[in-house]
Nucleic acid binder design. Structure first.
Lengths: 320, 320
DNA sequence: TCCTCCCTTGCAAACGGTTGCGCGTCCAAG
DNA sequence: CTTGGACGCGCAACCGTTTGCAAGGGAGGA
């Protein structure tokens, strides 16, 4: 049975309120008393119960971080950065995975609401309306989505897609397949938007697809058949699956088809050919999101972070 | 401001205790009253505050899951399985990452202790003594480590290492390098133990190394120099880094050196050559750990799960 | 008709903390 | 020798919820 504030009070011969102040308002207690209390607390291994504390103060010093799929390698760097940043601000981060299921996502948010000071929502699958209602219960910062009036951290995928298309155009590609992600994903929409704006290029959009390796494998045939000499994929996982699928059909990357992904995840760096990709500033986004959540001053702030094209081995000159 | 039990009581014209019972002891309240209460609760969007509830009941219906490094692809399947299993038992799982730092690990455990009903400790870096002391505050299940008297879930790496060595021996390899992981890791020790028991093989152990891609890159030269024709690596990440390092030196896998990893993570399946590996039953371990934690009857139970050798492309006949 | 017993509900204490308020003590200024 | 802060501390209410206890009322049996 863990020690409570009462045990500390009894051992050090003072009232519980004095113990409480010894921790949270040191200037209100006599240094001598304070060190006696601290010694007793240390002796008993006492740690304040954060949940109980939250009951009166309303602050838990915990943050929630909700992602759609922990096994997507895109998230870990974001998560780690967020944890590190939070730790620096004396907060802890609890991560939860929704399995891409909106119902689970909602349930999770409601559960977390009272146990954390704020929630980082990464790539949510819930509708704007539901999220806005939930926002009355707990402060949010949304990553990779824009929701009216809520603070959010965005990655400039439009700019990244632009870089990618320029790169491909420079290599002589004209007919380019756009392998999309899940329907309704903000990132997916941004990519489409860029595509429609791009001139002189012949863009075929394929999808929606699940944002996984399997999704890439599944569209390989369609991509091969559409006559494109290059592909821009929703994310690296899709791109890698696609490359594997093409290889199985005897199609070489980049000799016959060039492939560009999004995210810059580890498997892409390890792959042969090494994947050319638009790097997302995931770590920066994690840090920024925590900052936004904790300052809580800038209500409707949205931050947009730039992306960068990383040219590796999966793109080459269009064959003529 | 979220609705509390008092609001519900006021609106439905009953005492708070009746509201409480309407939720947690339905048979004690008149069906008519109950439905009135439920309607009011629904109206107000009331959800019981789990933290407050935990104060009196001592149960939070939350579980903690602590891992050393979320970005190691070995963990996500384990995490997802644990979450799914917990969800089926009406619990939520909060994941936290220790950054491989024992101090952070301890801090995290103490913080979580009061906010969860139990903690899943995966590959802890803390000493046995510290963990045993912490176990007085909160129930543990340990994964991938054996700690006197604590329930644990182990993976049979000895058996897996045996399979791997048999496979290599069958291919004609005699001199085999053992690329170890972090010092003091239980898995690492198990591997070593098997190695010393194996007969007729010439085993060189190299390490300790950080269990990452970078660690593998860094030992490539040493491996190449030691004269081994095959390598058994602590995990897939190390193996992949090693293969990359060897490639940079112009050494082909598996033509010149065979490589086997542990874990069976996604990048290994995507790699060229596809990695031969000993598959760890991570998902099963996650499920099992949650079960052990929630039944809480079997005090010192330890479960050992078998591993399986997956032969792919990174192993081949020893060159003569 | 009266006594039980059960069903339903309210009361109040408790969980582990925090915090506004007020009371004594001590010291320095007037 | 008063007066008056400042300081250090205890008291008690409160946060949201659960739960043992008891009280009220209605129904059924004697």
């Amino acid at each position: 049975m863990a020690a409570t504030i009462k045990d500390v009070a009894r051992v050090s011969g003072v009232h519980v309120s004095t113990v409480s102040r010894a921790f949270s308002a040191p200037h209100l207690v006599n240094p001598a008393t304070r060190s006696r209390v601290l010694a007793a607390a240390d002796d008993l291994g006492y740690r304040p119960n954060r949940a109980a504390r939250a009951l009166t103060t309303g602050r838990t010093f915990n943050l929630g971080l909700i992602v759609a799929d922990i096994s997507n390698p895109f998230f870990p760097p974001l998560i780690k950065a967020a944890q590190a940043q939070a730790r620096g601000r004396d907060h802890h981060v609890f991560v939860a995975d929704t399995d891409e299921d909106p119902r689970v996502e909602e349930e999770l948010i409601r559960t977390l609401a009272k146990q954390v000071d704020g929630v980082l929502l990464c790539s949510p699958r819930l509708s704007n309306k539901v999220i806005e209602r939930l926002a009355e219960d707990v402060p949010f910062v949304v990553v990779n989505r824009r929701i009216g009036g809520m603070p959010s951290v965005l990655m400039n995928v439009a700019q990244g897609a632009g870089l990618a298309l320029d790169h491909l155009a420079g290599l002589g590609h004209r007919r380019i397949a756009l392998v999309c992600g899940p329907a309704g994903s903000w990132t997916s929409n941004e990519m489409q938007a860029v595509a429609t704006r791009s001139q002189g290029l012949d863009l075929i959009s394929i999808g929606p697809n699940p944002p996984t390796e399997g999704g890439g494998l599944a569209v390989a045939a369609e991509v091969a058949a559409c006559g494109a000499t290059a592909v821009l994929a929703y994310n690296d996982l899709l791109a890698l699956g696609l490359i594997e699928g093409l290889a199985a059909m005897g199609i070489e990357v980049p000799e016959q088809i060039s492939v560009i992904g999004f995210d810059d995840i580890l498997p892409g760096r390890l792959n042969r050919p090494k994947l050319t990709t638009v790097a997302m500033p995931a770590a920066a986004a994690g840090r920024m999101a925590v900052d936004l959540l904790l300052q809580s001053g800038g209500e409707g702030t949205t931050v947009t972070l730039d992306t960068a094209l990383i040219v590796r081995e999966s793109t080459g000159r269009a064959r003529t």
